[in-house]
Amino acid sequence: MVDLATAWELFRDAIVCAVLAGVVLGGLGVHVVVRRMVFASAALAEAAALGVMIGFFVEIYSGLAVPPSLTAIGVALLAAVGLAWRPEAVSREVILAAVWIGSAALALVVGASITQEAHDVAEILLGSAVLVRPEDLWRVAGSSVFVAGAAAVLHRGLVFAGFDEETARVHGLPVRALEVALWALITIQVATCTRALGALPVFAFSVLPGAAALLWVGRLQAAFPVAAALGAVSGAGGFLLAFVFDLPVGASQAGVATALFACGMLWSRARSSALLR
């Protein structure tokens, strides 16, 4: 068996990538959870996975080397536009379902045509990636810095528009633009990280650390750093567990995020019971 020091040399990039994804998606996840759009990131991750496959497909059948990260962002942005600009008469849930089902169906169709890349396809959908390419690490790092910075700049507007949209509109805040910006930031981070880590852990990072943080601390402002920390723990801890117990990495990372959320539920329940006594 490989010792931990050697393993660190081998897997350092993958762990750093998972931590960056966990930190930024964890923080964004707080917005995702309080705006009740948790399945949006699932739909976007699925659309991003489809985009990666389209990148492979185009390269195989046309010889044109399009970076799969770019096609992932392109397809996920198209999905995000559909989510953000839906007609009033259609609920967000219906659009989410349409994006998820359409992306999953097309991913199966495209996946069947690129059997040479079957291993990569499995990595993208389930997150079984043990190693991360250096270029993917740099893309995730760049995306993380940009998305975290933009979210920090927009923070007060996003919170106001999320909590009391009508008053925000009366005060002249660009509520629609803020919503589109939030979708765009989530899309960029989800699409970039899906290529590197897989759809399942990316979906987990974008929902569960945020939800757990809100349960742990019960304050919006404190929830952001706590969610980022829980996201980092999910990313690195999941990788470590996968290494020690020889588990699929993505499943292990999603499992750690789920366990942290479950602990948050128990903590919140225990605190409520103590207050009632």
Binding site: V153, L154, H155, R156, G157, V159, F160, F163, D164, T167, A168, H171, G172, L173, P174, L220, Q221
Partner: peptide, 14 residues
């Protein structure tokens, strides 16, 4: 935070 929201107008949240 809620009271602070009152002070925001247009793009002043930036």
């Amino acid at each position: 935070q809620v009271v602070g929201m009152g002070t925001l107008r247009g793009w002043s949240f930036l």
